[in-house]
Amino acid sequence: MGAETILSAASTLALGLMCVAFFLTAWRVIRGPTLPDRIVALDMLVAIAIGFIAVIAIRTGFNLYIDIAIALGLVGFLATVAFARFVLSHGMSEDGEDPALVPDRPQRGKGRRKGRAR
C-alpha cells in the first residue's frame, strides 16, 4: 500500500463524511426554527466549506487553496458578527417559534421534536 493510496482513501472518506455533514447542516438552515438557529447553521456551513477546501488542496496538491480557506474563514467570522448585530438590533422575529413556549414531549428517543411541527 503506497502513500498515494492511503491519502486518496482518507480524503475520499473525509469528503463523504463532510458531504453528509453539509446536508445535515443545510437541513437545519432550512428548518430553522428561529433566526439564531439558522445563523449557527450557516456558520457551521462555512466551517464545513473550509474543510472541503483543505481536502481539495491535499487531493490536487494546489496549495493556494489554503489561502482561500483562510480568506473564507475571515469572511465567515465577519458574517457571524454582522448577523449577531442584526439579531441584537432587530429583536425577536415574529415567525420564530420559541422553544420554551412550545410543549416538549418527554425526553424519549426520536419522537421528541415532532410536537414542534407547524
Binding site: V20, T25, A54, V55
Partner: peptide, 20 residues
C-alpha cells in the same frame, strides 16, 4: 495526514449531527 483528515471529517460530521 490521513489520520488527521479522517478525524477532522468525523468531528465535522458529529458537529453537524449535533446541530440537528
Amino acid at each position: 495526514v490521513a489520520v488527521m483528515l479522517v478525524a477532522g471529517g468525523i468531528f465535522v460530521f458529529l458537529a453537524a449531527l449535533g446541530i440537528v
